[in-house]
Design a protein around this nucleic acid. Structure first.
Lengths: 300, 300
DNA sequence: TATGTGCTATTCATAATTGAATGGTAAAAG
DNA sequence: CTTTTACCATTCAATTATGAATAGCACATA
């Protein structure tokens, strides 16, 4: 767009930055919602404008030359500044219309948030919601999400956080399993039953050790680290498993076991969002709604 | 160019940055070699994408809103990074074809450099030269010029400098003036003649005080601060004036006076260029040529 | 070996962007 | 007061940029 009389066209630099990050024209095109030939042309135009080869073409993408690597530092700075600019501007937007991106763990996204979001959409139909289930930590500053619902205290800088409360956890099993195997009255009776465990995670092993029951990974004949699927295995009658009470108590297929016999640790619920966005009306509205709805579910 | 699915189009940000700097759509359009309606559309698109008013329209241009001012910081950072990127890339360019921008004082640009540049263009015709006469200090990092010829030691950071040598100065007057008024043999005789002085600058007053002649601004019945015009006044026969010997001795209209009677201070010649550009073949070639030609002129 | 995947490069039609031209407003100058 | 200057906003034709489609290459898999 900018003619070549001294000033570099920043859209060429944007494409350069995306190619450096993605390592290929196709990857950059996907990231920028553009086409591969367009990105290829931008890189070619930039190389011509600068008079330097920035990449070597390879079958699996583009590898930056040493010049390209050196220049990538500046491009990264531009990207960082652009991200911050967007963040600040979004904090000042005064329009309720638009999208808010919420991220939460897969379990929470699957079992907790849908009913809350359905109600919220009815209450605020002008706000669109994008739900990003993820068990990894999203980077809020890069706007991978606007609001995160987390079971641990957030530690990222420049974010605001709110501790909504603590949700209890308990042991559950499917009614069908208990009908078949019997219902344990005491904790020691339960150790003869099947437990659904985790594969790599030692969380349940540690919890049971705290209860005086020493187990190893082989004690759990069925193991799955993915928590939502772990819960589906319990619901299907594969054995006993732990879950948040707001999930388990709401499920008609399962029963809660051993109340009073074991004291499970609670899980905290935290909300977090980039500080700069807290003045954004839209995100503020979703934040408040989520906070109230989650508090209500855990009985606060 | 980038569709509005999360990633801001940097060409919009580039236009925003130019408008903030120039204070108007028209000014920004001139700076970016674009048209005013295009820049206006970019600002409008950016305001729509961000959902924030960035400027208030005024008869004399655009005034940034408080949001616009805050966002301008990031745009400034992007511009700074883009400038550095360009500088580094240009330092790596390996093409002799292209433009080199030289800046020097108006006097040097007028009387010294033309013959040098004519020879250089013959020696290296693939290199285009842009000469920027200026008595103010250009910012080399922003590529307002590639090479500066200066009469003082450059102090800007991240530049390389070379002291070519010192050029003597002397007192001159037009032959026509001397034919009419006589030729002074001694310094005290000269004080009865006309001197062309400076208006605001006290340079000549200080030089003469050093020679034991106390003068005030009113001693000079004709005054002009612009050095090239000052020299034209001398050449036209308005009176005596000081000049660099490489200018004065080359001029058939004037004579050099009072040699041996007064010892004028020399003026240094320095070359300077951004450090990052010193690997650029084109700029390196022009630097070397200038250095040699100027040294030859002052007898080194 | 054949097939599938992921990539780059190129062509051509379409879509989007751009700029010349025009009109209007406000402020400065004569 | 009139004229000039500098600005923004809008329209419409021209220009430029884009993307779908295709071909080719390298690598991995069955």
């Amino acid at each position: 767009m900018v003619k070549d009389v001294g000033e570099l066209d920043w859209s060429l630099l944007q494409s350069f930055s995306a190619v450096v990050d993605a390592g290929s024209l196709s990857g950059a095109a996907r990231a920028l919602a553009q086409s591969q030939p367009t990105i290829g042309r931008h890189i070619k135009a930039l190389e011509a404008a600068l008079g330097v080869g920035l990449f070597t073409r390879a079958p699996r993408g583009l590898a930056p030359t040493s010049a390209g690597l050196e220049i990538a530092e500046m491009a990264r700075e531009m990207q960082s500044a652009a991200n911050r600019l967007r963040l600040i501007a979004d904090g000042k937007a005064d329009d309720l219309n638009g999208t808010v991106r919420i991220t939460a763990s897969v379990v929470t996204s699957h079992y907790v948030l849908p009913s809350i979001i359905a109600d919220m959409r009815q209450a605020m139909p002008e706000i669109q919601i994008e739900l990003v289930p993820s068990d990894t930590t999203e980077n809020l500053i890069f706007r991978e999400a606007d609001i995160a619902v987390r079971m641990y205290r957030p530690t990222q800088l420049d974010v605001i956080t709110k501790h909504v409360g603590d949700q209890p956890t308990a042991v559950y099993a499917a009614k069908s399993y208990l009908d078949r195997m019997g219902r344990p009255k005491m904790l020691k009776d339960a150790t003869n039953l099947d437990f659904v465990g985790f594969d790599k995670s030692d969380l349940i092993i540690r919890v049971m050790a705290d209860l005086g029951i020493k187990t190893t990974r082989d004690f759990f004949s069925l193991r799955c680290d993915q928590q939502a699927v772990h819960w589906e295995l319990v619901r299907a009658g594969c054995g006993l498993g732990g879950a948040q009470t707001i999930v388990g108590d709401a499920d008609p297929l399962v029963e809660r076991l051993l109340d009073g016999q074991i004291q499970m640790q609670s899980l905290p619920i935290w909300l977090t969002a980039p500080q700069a966005l807290h003045t954004n009306l839209r995100i503020r509205a979703v934040w408040d709604y989520l906070s109230n709805a989650l508090a209500k579910q855990i009985g606060i």
